[in-house]
Simulated assay, not measured.
Amino acid sequence: MASVIYLMCAATALACAILVLRSYRASRHRLLFWCGLCFGGMFLCNVLLIVDRLVLPDTDLSTVRLAAGLAALLPLLYGLVWEDE
């Protein structure tokens, strides 16, 4: 059951990244670009969670997952603080 939830979370993050980046391509609002990168990073974080929990259960990848989560949030933080419309 957990594997289904992990896959659904990863698919949702990927769908959000694709939709937000498509919207950015149509409107060229810079904040959409940063949000799309954030969702792409969240997808990567979810994939790392799947690898950590299901593929390599004996290996602890929690530090890598946390670093990926931080890296996913940094573009959004940059966009919110330093981008002006």
Score class of each variant (00 low, 15 high):
Met1Asp: 09
Ala2Trp: 15
Ser3Leu: 12
Ser3His: 13
Ser3Gly: 05
Ser3Pro: 09
Val4Trp: 08
Val4Pro: 10
Val4Thr: 12
Val4Asn: 14
Ile5Ala: 04
Ile5Asp: 10
Leu7Pro: 03
Leu7Met: 09
Leu7Phe: 13
Met8Ala: 14
Met8Cys: 12
Met8Thr: 11
Cys9His: 07
Cys9Thr: 15
Cys9Val: 10
Ala11His: 04
Ala13Asp: 13
Leu14Tyr: 13
Leu14Glu: 12
Ala15Glu: 11
Ala15Ile: 09
Cys16Asn: 12
Cys16Ala: 11
Cys16Ser: 10
Ala17Trp: 01
Ala17Ile: 02
Ala17Tyr: 01
Leu19Trp: 11
Val20His: 02
Val20Gln: 01
Val20Asp: 04
Leu21Ala: 00
Leu21Ser: 07
Ser23Ile: 05
Ser23Leu: 07
Tyr24Gln: 02
Tyr24Ser: 03
Ala26Tyr: 11
Ala26Trp: 04
Ala26Asn: 15
Ser27Cys: 00
Arg28Gln: 07
Arg28Pro: 05
Arg28Met: 09
His29Ile: 11
His29Tyr: 10
His29Trp: 07
His29Ala: 13
Arg30Pro: 09
Arg30Phe: 04
Leu31Arg: 08
Leu31Thr: 09
Leu32Ile: 02
Leu32Lys: 09
Phe33Gly: 09
Cys35Ile: 15
Gly36Met: 05
Leu37His: 05
Leu37Glu: 04
Phe39Asp: 10
Phe39Gly: 02
Phe39Ala: 12
Gly40Val: 01
Gly41Ala: 01
Gly41His: 00
Gly41Ile: 05
Gly41Ser: 06
Met42Ser: 14
Phe43Ala: 03
Phe43Leu: 02
Cys45Ile: 02
Cys45Thr: 14
Asn46Thr: 03
Asn46Arg: 01
Leu48Ser: 10
Leu49Ile: 11
Ile50Leu: 08
Asp52Glu: 14
Asp52Thr: 05
Arg53Phe: 12
Leu54Asn: 15
Val55Ile: 14
Leu56His: 07
Leu56Thr: 14
Pro57Asn: 01
Thr59Cys: 11
Asp60Glu: 03
Asp60Pro: 03
Leu61Val: 09
Thr63Ala: 15
Thr63Tyr: 12
Thr63Asn: 15
Thr63Glu: 08
Val64Gln: 07
Val64Leu: 14
Val64Lys: 04
Arg65Pro: 02
Leu66Lys: 00
Leu66His: 07
Ala67Trp: 04
Ala67Ser: 07
Ala67Asp: 00
Ala67Thr: 02
Ala68His: 00
Ala68Asn: 09
Ala68Ile: 00
Gly69Arg: 03
Gly69Val: 01
Leu70Ala: 14
Leu70Cys: 04
Ala71Thr: 04
Leu73Phe: 12
Leu73His: 06
Leu74Asn: 02
Leu74Asp: 03
Pro75Leu: 05
Leu76Cys: 05
Leu76Gln: 06
Leu77Glu: 07
Tyr78Pro: 00
Gly79Asn: 01
Leu80Arg: 08
Leu80Trp: 06
Leu80Ser: 09
Val81Ser: 14
Trp82Ile: 06
Trp82Ala: 05
Asp84Tyr: 13
Asp84Gly: 10
Asp84Asn: 08
Glu85His: 10
